[in-house]
Computed example of a mutant assay.
Amino acid sequence: MRAQLSVLAVLFAAASPAAASEQIADQYPQSVLYQKPVEVIPYVWSAIGATAPPTYENSGHNNNLSFLVTGEGVIVINAGACAQLAEALHEEIKLVTDEPVRMVINENGQGHAMLGNSYWAEQQVPILAQVAAAEEFEAHGADILARMQDYNRDKAEGTSVQGPTETFEDEKVIEMGRFRVEVKNLGPAHAPGDIVVWLPDVSLVISGDMAFHERLLPIFDETDTAAWLESWEAFEALEATYVIPGHGHPTNMHQVRRYTRDYLVHLRGEIRTLIDAGGSLKEAYYVDQSPFAHLDTFEQLATRNAGRVFEQMEWE
């Protein structure tokens, strides 16, 4: 346990913007995975993805693929952006344990959460997602697959559109071996069907895209930032000691609050000031976001985020 805590301390020390990896194309060239899985706390593992957009070099592994070794089977969180990533993660799991994978949980309806489902379905593993995530993937799965095929080329081979085999509305509780696993929909956040995986006995949350910290969070047309801030209150109420975010290294609640909640509050405040002064959408692109300019993907997302928040807040 002492050695494990030392590993965790190193990870948490690395969990700062300085450790972000947008400029590093691949940290595990022996595998299509971006990084080899690490044991965050005992029996909880995560393969940390790139904090850059999906590319051929990172194989679309730009989110975190986690798994729990329960003693009675393995639970995987996120299927990955393609079948080859799912298979690579499975091979890493086999190096850790001989327990079979008994469930896969999709954190939302995005490609890097669900496209690997096709591999897991072939292994006859049940796949769980929130209802809205399943509906999102059913409606847009073909387009999501096509976009992945465009950047991943030969690495997309073997991937097909496969939704979850089971859905839930608000909460699904799984009692398996050493873990009580609470899969929760806390309300609207980054994308339709966002969930968190809460392990109350060890005070660890796999937050999915509820929480960001090493890369700037993206705001989509369908992202309701006001509702996200309301959902955040339920997320904070978990009082988690450890946070494995959807993107970036394992960290703590303070860090994700600073770069998720505080970013949303800051951006909405800047846009509200602009709207109250009679400002335009064109001016919104230039509001001050400098406190967050050091985050990965800032250049790709900051102006886009500002424009989308302006368009939303005009009608609030």
Rank of each mutant, 00 (worst) to 15 (best):
L11A: 04
Q23H: 15
A25P: 09
P29I: 10
P29G: 10
P37L: 01
S46Q: 07
A50N: 13
T51C: 09
T51P: 08
T55S: 11
T55F: 09
E57P: 01
H61I: 02
N63Q: 12
F67P: 02
L68F: 01
V69C: 06
V74K: 00
K94Y: 05
K94A: 11
L95S: 15
R102H: 05
V104D: 00
H112P: 15
G116D: 03
A132K: 13
D143M: 11
Q149K: 10
Y151P: 10
R153F: 04
K155Q: 14
A156W: 00
A156Y: 01
G163Q: 04
P164C: 03
P164I: 03
K172E: 10
I174Y: 09
L186G: 06
A189Q: 07
P192N: 08
D194R: 09
D194A: 09
I195R: 00
V196T: 09
P200Q: 03
G208S: 03
D209M: 03
E214L: 10
L217I: 13
F220P: 03
D221W: 11
T223V: 05
A226N: 12
E239Q: 11
E239F: 00
Y242R: 02
H249E: 15
H254K: 15
Q255C: 07
Q255M: 14
V256M: 06
R258F: 08
Y259L: 12
Y259R: 14
Y263K: 07
L264A: 09
H266R: 11
H266V: 06
L274E: 06
L281Y: 11
Y286Q: 14
D288W: 06
Q289D: 14
F298H: 12
E299Q: 15
L301E: 08
A302Y: 12
T303D: 14
R304H: 13
R308A: 07
M313K: 08
